[in-house]
Design a protein around this nucleic acid. Structure first.
Lengths: 257, 257
DNA sequence: CGTCGTTTTGATCAAATTCAAAAAGTGTGG
DNA sequence: CCACACTTTTTGAATTTGATCAAAACGACG
């Protein structure tokens, strides 16, 4: 029943072999004070601490467009922090159907998994640079306790939260709502949360329609049609295929369900 | 566009007020040895450790059918371990659409969140008992390091993994695949992974069709139709609405995509 | 300028939803 | 034990949303 006959050829993806020398973990940091409970504000001190850890003890790598950082089922060796470019993580079904879990940009952490093997793969959407550190060293740090243990836990929990938002989107939102929601969350992810830039803001989308479709659980055609539909409604303007002007942020927010 | 006019009345849910006295966190446990990397095997020692923590320092609560353990946006106070019954966690859209994230049964942990407020709610599907411990005390334990820090990180990561599987299901699987997948994963969650019980196994589903639909991103009608369709294919047998005989586990596995 | 990959648009199709109603199950009180 | 009210589940018919198939438009690049 409902067998998918047409198999989309997955984009050719270069494997990337990474081998890092063993390294000692960075020195443990002292007693961290309890995280302040300010809602919706990113905890910059932990962000900085993570950044420092990767910059000091991480190894820099360049991943070219469409090559993979790691593959599904590959033993987990490293964890990565994106320095530039964009990484997508995704899962594949045997018939080629693809689901993208997320897009990771400068400052984001990719590969935060605890099992023995990655359960999804990570590929570069555009030429990217990342810093890698050994997963093993993170584990040691966590067991050592202190601020770092709680920061890593926190990061994982935040990822889980994002993931649940994604579940809601895929399970219960219409195509229009999905695209609207995507534009808004990408805009805020890019680091321009809701600054009321007068006249709206311009968004450069680094990913293809196929990537958006695979993230949103739709087809390219539907994504494309929804964009033109939103343009017709005066909510966005398409400066070019990948350059969108969010003219009416409020309307967009209303559309998102 | 695509406005949902008909608003499903969300099932009436009793609020539950829980207030626990402050408690001291359990004593820190000593140096844990590195977790063995045996794939797909549940780490029973950490499971036992968590169980012990909740049993020793947790407060027991009973939640009646359809009453809530905690609500979305409520400040995070406790974290819970299910002792009996079934808890569902879900998110609501303002027009009443609901998405269920997961079903939690004996031994499962509910409410593992790091922000200030819950981002989803938890309700009992059937009368359940849970043990609650203060989130604050867990944080202290994590910062203290040791085995517990890594166990909690691990649990959160495992939840994230489950969540990504759910994303794949909602984004890229057909109705039939979703139901097949649900039956299999529920069967293994219930603790009977793939024991080749000759003649198949009987599964008692504690949740309504509405709950399954809201978990699978479908409607009750589609779930019901899919069940009868699977029965017609000889893959399952419906002993009663909530009692399913998985006659052909292999076929079910093939259906799941 | 021609080629190749991406995006848009159009026409048709199918899967799942919606609307509607019958059937089955549950619990209550006589 | 049965009658009655009420909820859940199943089934049917019509409708809708988004998918599929097909082709044209667009853009980047040699």
């Amino acid at each position: 029943m409902s067998s998918i006959l047409q198999i989309r050829q997955p984009a050719f993806v270069e494997p990337l072999s990474v081998s890092l020398p063993n390294m000692r973990s960075g020195r443990g940091h002292g007693e961290g004070q309890q995280a302040l409970c300010v809602e919706k504000i990113v905890d910059w001190s932990s962000e900085a601490q993570i950044a420092q850890l990767f910059t000091e003890t991480g190894i820099s790598l360049t991943v070219s467009r469409n090559s993979e950082l790691f593959a599904e089922d590959q033993p987990i060796d490293n964890i990565y922090r994106v320095e530039s470019g964009v990484i997508r993580t995704c899962k594949l079904l045997n018939d080629g159907r693809r689901q993208i879990d997320g897009f990771y940009m400068a400052g984001d952490i990719v590969g935060l998994e605890m099992g023995c093997r990655y359960t999804y793969c990570a590929e570069a959407i555009a030429r990217s640079t990342v810093r890698a550190i050994r997963m093993r060293s993170l584990r040691v740090q966590v067991e050592a306790g202190g601020r770092m243990a709680s920061v890593l836990w926190d990061m994982t929990a935040r990822e889980l939260q994002r993931s649940r938002e994604h579940i809601l989107l895929l399970g219960r939102r219409s195509a229009t709502e999905r695209v609207a929601s995507f534009l808004l969350s990408f805009a805020s992810h890019i680091g321009r949360p809701n600054a009321a830039e007068p006249g709206g803001m311009i968004l450069d989308l680094p990913m293809s329609r196929q990537d958006m479709a695979d993230y949103l659980g739709l087809t390219i055609e539907t994504v494309s049609r929804t964009f033109t539909q939103l343009e017709g409604m005066g909510v966005i303007a398409l400066l070019s295929a990948r350059r969108v002007h969010l003219s009416n942020r409020t309307a967009l927010r209303d559309l998102n369900g």
